[in-house]
Computed example of a mutant assay.
Amino acid sequence: MKPTTPGIHHVTAIAGDPQRNAEFYVETLGLRFVKRTVNHDDTGTYHFYFGDGEGTPGTNITFFPWTDSGRRGQFGAGQTRDTAYQIPPDSVEYWIDRLESAGVEVDQVERFGEPVLEFDDPDGIGLEFVASEQAFEADAQPWPESPVPAEYQARGFHSVTLAVPAFGPTASVLTDVLGFELEAEADGRRRYRPAGDGSEPGSSSGPGSIVDLVETDAGRGRMGVGTVHHVAFEAADLEEQERWREAFADHGQNVTEIIDRKYFRSIYSREPGGVLFEMATTEPGFTVDEDIDDLGSGLMLPEWLESERDRIEAQLPEFDPETVGAGAGAN
């Protein structure tokens, strides 16, 4: 039996200045700073996680802030064009006012019958807020200290939009490996969700489960500041992770061994259209090294890097976590 996924676990992108990045996602978007650690593969770079009140899988956007001296990325084929959050349907006007007051340009469109707010973060990463009834079905937990009132807070991911050279090769991975099915097509966009009605574990067609594909004639994108590094989908546990490795390999995909990322266990495979996919387990989660009330309060390192803490802290870029969200009460 093939494994199935309920949808998106997290999205990881590359930012510029770490201070600007954290202030935007906490103070403007109202997300909680749930974890501050380092890129395990490049310990001179922070790894920030922003999510709901508990860092629930399916709510976390994460960043490697390369600073403003880092190489700029170039959008193109094989990249995530937009990352969409779901918001309650009656919060559209609130978010338009909030974003515009923060100097963010917002466009409002309709897509598959739902209002969508399109905007960019300070580094040019494409974001969307989708006013969806499914926001009420999400597992996202409100963050009481958010500058955004609980009734308007983003409730986890709605979807990702992947830009690919052609639909077919990427669609085959979505359908044949991940178990998605084509749900709708309009205006040059194809929408996929996990097959099933949600009655069985892993067969959810609910919130955070959508992948949209669009074709682009742009050349292959270049990774760097202002681009998304990878999209991660949920895997239940290590046993299922092994089945995911087999599923990717059986489809002819190169896939990594299981890698310990401290808060989850991961495998990676680059689909034929160029997008890097990750499968990430839901456990052990962010409370493995911090109490839930203290999430994001310290620089957390995995055990295998703890002996290098002094060296790591000395080479990290300037960042003051104490000023992020200071005095930003709900409004």
Score class of each variant (00 low, 15 high):
127 L>Q: 13
182 L>T: 06
283 E>Y: 04
52 D>L: 03
148 V>D: 00
152 Y>S: 11
261 R>E: 13
88 P>F: 01
162 L>I: 12
220 R>V: 13
58 G>Y: 12
64 F>G: 01
229 H>L: 12
67 T>C: 07
1 M>I: 11
162 L>D: 05
132 S>D: 14
89 P>F: 04
302 P>E: 08
262 K>H: 15
100 E>A: 08
287 T>M: 10
311 R>D: 15
112 F>V: 10
79 Q>D: 09
247 A>H: 10
44 G>P: 03
212 D>Q: 09
84 A>D: 07
296 G>R: 01
285 G>L: 02
292 I>C: 11
225 V>T: 12
223 M>W: 08
168 G>H: 13
154 A>G: 06
299 L>T: 04
23 E>W: 00
316 L>S: 00
182 L>E: 15
27 E>D: 14
245 R>L: 11
144 P>Y: 03
1 M>T: 13
136 F>P: 01
267 I>S: 10
228 V>W: 09
91 S>N: 05
286 F>M: 02
177 V>S: 02
188 G>M: 09
157 F>I: 06
44 G>W: 06
323 T>K: 10
224 G>R: 09
290 E>A: 14
169 P>T: 00
297 S>I: 09
121 D>L: 08
327 G>E: 11
319 F>A: 05
222 R>G: 13
237 D>W: 10
70 G>V: 02
232 A>Q: 04
30 G>W: 00
270 R>A: 11
161 T>I: 10
98 R>G: 05
111 R>Q: 15
165 P>L: 01
142 P>E: 09
98 R>L: 09
299 L>M: 04
199 S>C: 00
144 P>C: 10
93 E>V: 11
174 L>F: 08
82 D>I: 13
218 A>F: 06
121 D>P: 03
33 F>Y: 14
173 V>A: 02
247 A>V: 03
133 E>D: 15
247 A>Q: 14
48 F>T: 05
190 R>A: 10
16 G>M: 06
215 E>Q: 14
284 P>L: 06
47 H>F: 00
326 A>G: 05
63 F>A: 08
69 S>K: 15
192 Y>I: 05
245 R>T: 08
293 D>W: 10
239 E>G: 15
30 G>M: 05
